[in-house]
Write a protein that binds this DNA or RNA. Sequence first.
DNA 1: TCCCTTGAGGAAAAGGTTTTCCGTCGCTAG
DNA 2: CTAGCGACGGAAAACCTTTTCCTCAAGGGA
Lengths: 339, 339
Amino acid sequence: MAGRQPRVGIVDVARRAGVSVGTVSKALNGRGQLRPETRDRVRAAAQELGFVPSAVAASLHSGRTYTVGLIMTDHHGRFSLPILHGAEDALGWDETLAFVCDTRDDPIREQHYVRSLARRRVDGIIVAGRRTEPRPPLAGAVTVPVVYAFARSADPADCSVVVDEEGGAALAVQHLLRTGRRRVAHVTGPHGHASVRARVNGTSRALREAGLELAGEPWYGGWSEVWGRFAAAALVREHPDVDAIFCGSDAIGRGVADGLRDSGRRVPEDIALVGVDNWLPTAEGCRPALTSVDLDLQQVGRRAGALLLAAIQRGGTEPGTHTVPCRLVVRASSAPAAG
Amino acid sequence: MAGRQPRVGIVDVARRAGVSVGTVSKALNGRGQLRPETRDRVRAAAQELGFVPSAVAASLHSGRTYTVGLIMTDHHGRFSLPILHGAEDALGWDETLAFVCDTRDDPIREQHYVRSLARRRVDGIIVAGRRTEPRPPLAGAVTVPVVYAFARSADPADCSVVVDEEGGAALAVQHLLRTGRRRVAHVTGPHGHASVRARVNGTSRALREAGLELAGEPWYGGWSEVWGRFAAAALVREHPDVDAIFCGSDAIGRGVADGLRDSGRRVPEDIALVGVDNWLPTAEGCRPALTSVDLDLQQVGRRAGALLLAAIQRGGTEPGTHTVPCRLVVRASSAPAAG
DNA sequence: TCCCTTGAGGAAAAGGTTTTCCGTCGCTAG
DNA sequence: CTAGCGACGGAAAACCTTTTCCTCAAGGGA
């Protein structure tokens, strides 16, 4: 199909409508002073000819492309796609389109993409990180506004939007306490991870505020179900009186749920569970369905998009790290204790 | 940052290097006849000035934007992201950038995106479907080549790349037979789904070729773990002698695995399991890890990208449906029966 | 009656490259 | 000595809109 017909341009429309090209532009964009009848005639001509104005030419003139780059580092898109959706919402999805660039964790590739985006004159760039470790800022002289989302830039002079992970952890723990739990343990990811640290802090803080403390040390491990299963078995052996476990991820949570069942503990009757990520396939596949802290990445994306838009319009981002709160999604795994 | 300095253009480079703009263009693009010394001088000037050529202006001239649209309909990106990766590989990720458009399953939105892409003069469009149901072709007069990936277009005159689902099912069954299984059952998704049908067909064919037949009817249900668990329990009751189950998805497979364990059957000792999708979080989280048919979507994307590229260069796609084979990824759930 | 104002639409510049077509210079060969 | 050629690089058109003046005509007020 589409046998390379020579594109119909604004001049063709002008000829057909019997007006000048300037008039066509005005008619189609609702600018200038035109008789309604002329406007209609032009619109009709454009319609009949199937005229599609070239955003390329328009960009050349206006200097704006209504285009942004989204640099993502998680190839599965679990974090970056919600961010993209939020950003689209904020930027006006019918106005601004996004180039999605998956760096595949290769700095060289990332550099390439940044250059590519610069050449294409994107209006701005959103960098969507993976886990919330601060990341090195984009290399090279970037001449457009950049907003880092989810993973903040290591340079505090950059503009970043992050999740309030500590607050999210507190939310989880407070919920567990409200359901009557008192002996809360914490099974989480690798020691040293920024988000692991934040969650430990939030957990401790919430417990302290309630006059309690963590049951044992946090259990550091991986992000996997296997680790969750293993940790659950060990945990009930070491702390048989635990009645709630806050898990650093849904995968861990699901592993813990299985591990507890294997150890003869019932969830939530004996032990309540809360995870993090609210990742539906895992949280809802869990037995029982897993209460989870939703990082609200879409909101992160919206915020990032709004900041980027402001930066584009004003020219230049204002530095600073913006924090978005988490939400708790309650499911069966944290139903109040029977007793 | 980026205090809206007036962009350095090719004329600035020309002035600095003491040559004309045409010469700068030639020097930077390695075209024309230039003294090496001139070339170097220009390159140096460009470097010093931090000149970044505008792809917008270049596109305006050449008519190509080195840009494609990727229309996706699965917001989680489980299918479309691998396709995007493959497409990038084929299109040259350092040449061509992709606008990613998530329709959120809204035809209006899709239309909007198509128009948006047309205005931006993308060189082509890839439509990445969800499950492999044929989908209605893009609405409106699309003037650039379109390739449908994963879900074929309902219009056979379009160009589509799909997975050989039937072959994939056969692969799974043949593998089960090779490990010594003889009584194979099939638990799958909703009756009527194109991919469900294809997998049933592939299953029957492979069994027939081995002189066997399916143990009972296929178990139609949903794509969820819950369905898998339920089906497993019912299945062992109704067909106690089954020694292998081919599951229509990894989620189902995982549910089946759990259901079997609950029913006191061991996987793989008593019953071997194979799933479809090779979706790591599910397949590897499964106990035991689930052997799975990998749809090789990246390959689908590569193929689609290659076809699109050819169409762009020649102007117009050649119609037809292209099929990409699946791969089997063997894990613990299908180890040979002990006996 | 004449000037001014307002409404409608045209002409042309601008935006940043690429590319084609020429011109010039320095040589070489006849 | 001159025609001709090769090497190098400049001038300008082309790509497609948008936007800023401008012009022209008609109508209104003094």
